[in-house]
């Protein structure tokens, strides 16, 4: 038989079907069945009826929202200065800004925890503030990278045109540069918002005992409650699908955000 290049993808397709698609299918089946294997919407309604789970959903969204906003406020000026500040070694400085990403995140959070412990005396006083600091510390590079990329590749001619048409630097920024950096901002937001809703390890390590969506999965997992755990996963999947759709619509570049996550600078 003649060798065909396209057959090379067969192992990967099988792998994706078995270890990506099938697990999610099983999760969806578990989410909508009960212990006897019958179809039910009970878990689904139970989630939206219980004030505890709804509070968890709202708290996760609130945490994720504040984290994303703080990241954006810190990351945009940083990316801007690095990309357009006229530094000769802007690339090296960018590397310095994202380098902590390669240190294991639990160790980074440990460092934050020890520092906050020393400053605050007792972490239990400021659980919300500490969570935001920890999450921002963890996710900031994911926001800096896509914004930096988009700012670096801005079309110089458009900026010149803006200047020729009489825009002062302030107006040039608000009416040209900022709108043109939207894809990077959108990518950054999706890269930060979703992990911030689910990364419960940051909360655990900083002694914030309030649950977020991820902690619910963890607690159902520990209780061997696969059906409710799957329901939380299913709800998260819907949120994720919605965000991916929104990102596409808002002009974000998914490969850009994934590049940030993979730390692919080399």
């Amino acid at each position: 038989m003649r060798f065909r290049r396209r057959t090379l993808s067969i192992p990967y397709v099988l792998f994706l079907l078995v270890f990506v698609v099938a697990p999610l299918a099983v999760v969806l089946i578990y989410a909508f069945t009960n212990g006897q294997g019958r179809f039910t919407l009970e878990n689904f309604f139970a989630f939206f009826k219980s004030s505890r789970t709804i509070a968890t959903l709202l708290y996760s969204m609130w945490i994720a929202f504040v984290t994303t906003m703080v990241c954006l406020l810190l990351a945009y000026p940083t990316a801007y200065v690095l990309a357009r500040g006229g530094f000769k070694k802007g690339g090296a400085l960018l590397l310095l800004a994202v380098l902590p990403m390669w240190i294991n995140f639990t160790l980074r959070i440990t460092a934050v925890k020890e520092l906050l412990d020393a400053v605050e005396g007792n972490l239990a006083y400021y659980p919300f503030l500490n969570t935001i600091i920890g999450q921002v510390y963890d996710f900031l590079p994911f926001m800096i990278l896509p914004i930096y990329n988009v700012l670096l590749s801005l079309d110089q001619k458009v900026l010149e045109a803006g200047r020729d048409l009489g825009a002062d630097p302030k107006r040039l920024f608000w009416q040209v540069i900022l709108p043109m950096s939207r894809p990077g901002i959108v990518s950054g937001i999706t890269m930060v918002f979703l992990p911030a809703m689910t990364n419960y390890v940051v909360l655990d390590m900083l002694y914030n005992s309030t649950y977020i969506m991820g902690s619910l999965i963890g607690s159902y997992f520990n209780a061997y409650d696969w059906h409710n755990g799957s329901m939380i996963s299913a709800i998260l999947l819907m949120i994720i699908a919605f965000f991916s759709w929104l990102e596409k619509k808002a002009g974000g570049d998914i490969s850009d955000s994934s590049a940030a996550r993979g730390g692919s600078l080399l």
Binding site: L16, L17, F19, V21, P23, V26, P195, I217, I240, I254
Partner: peptide, 19 residues
């Protein structure tokens, strides 16, 4: 299919593989 684990939350990926 390739995009799924990239955008998915790691908690969900891990949980689903375990299930």
């Amino acid at each position: 299919m390739n995009q799924i684990p990239v955008v998915n939350a790691d908690v969900v990926t891990g949980f689903s593989v375990c299930i």
